[in-house]
Write a protein that binds this DNA or RNA. Structure first.
Lengths: 110, 110
DNA sequence: AATCTTTATCGTAATATTGCAATCTCAATA
DNA sequence: TATTGAGATTGCAATATTACGATAAAGATT
C-alpha cells in the first residue's frame, strides 16, 4: 500500500525513522554536508552546489525542514538555512547508544 | 520519476543515504532495537514481535540485509539474524563527526 | 512602476515503497 | 516418504517519492 503503519510502533522508533528517512537520499546528505562545511549558513546557493533543478532542491530542503534537521530564516528575499543541532544530537546519541551496547555484547553470534 | 540520481553524488554521501534509508521505517528501527535487546541474536520470532505479517517482515529484513545493517546465518531451517556492527559504526562515526563540527561552530546563525 | 532575483508551489510523469495473501522452498520430523 | 514449520518469493493494490517545467510570490533593484 505504501502506507507506513506508524501507529503500531513506539514514538521513539517513529522519531528515529523520520529523521533517518530524511537523510535517506544523497541530495539531502549533501545538503547537510554543505551546511556543515560552509562556515556561515550560506543560503540558497545550495542549488548551485547540487546537480538538481531548483524545484527539486527546494523540495529536499522542505523535507529536511519538516523532519527538523534544518531551520530556515528569511532574510530579505533570500533564505538562510542551517542545521538544527537538536535533531542531529538525537541521531548522534541514538547511534552512540547502539555502539555502546554492541561493544558490551562483543558478538556472541554470526 | 522516483529515481534517485545517485551518480551525481559522492560515494560517501550515497553510502550514508543508503544506510539512513534502511532505517527510515519504524519497523526496521524496531528490528534493530529488538536485535540489540535480545542477548543472543534470536531468529525469526522477530515476526512475532512486530505488528506486521510475515512476508512484510521478511521484506524489511531483506532491506536491512541489503543495506548491510544486519547479517543472517542459516541454522537448520531457521535463520539467525544479527546486527552488522560495521554498518552501525559507520553511522555512529558519521554523526559523531557532525556533532563535533557543530560544537566547534557554536551556532553563529539562525 | 517595471524588472530582476530568489525561493516556493503546482502539476505531472516515472518509479519506488509498503503491505499482504498466496504460494514456494527446503530442512526437520513423524 | 508424507507432513510440518520456518522463511522467502511472487504478484498485486494503494500510496509515496523523485524530478522537473511552468508558474507564483515577494523583496530588491533599476
Amino acid at each position: 500500500m505504501g502506507v507506513t503503519k506508524t501507529e503500531n510502533f513506539t514514538d521513539k522508533q517513529n522519531a528515529i525513522a523520520t529523521l533517518a528517512k530524511a537523510l535517506g537520499h544523497p541530495a539531502r546528505v549533501a545538503i547537510i554536508d554543505y551546511l556543515l562545511q560552509v562556515d556561515a549558513c550560506i543560503c540558497g546557493d545550495i542549488v548551485n552546489e547540487l546537480p538538481l533543478a531548483q524545484p527539486t532542491v527546494s523540495q529536499h530542503l522542505k523535507e529536511l525542514k519538516n523532519a527538523g534537521l534544518i531551520k530556515g530564516n528569511i532574510e530579505g528575499n533570500t533564505i538562510c538555512y542551517c542545521i538544527d543541532e537538536h535533531a542531529l544530537d538525537k541521531l548522534q546519541s541514538y547511534f552512540a547508544n547502539i555502539s555502546a551496547k554492541l561493544d558490551k555484547k562483543k558478538q556472541n553470534c554470526c
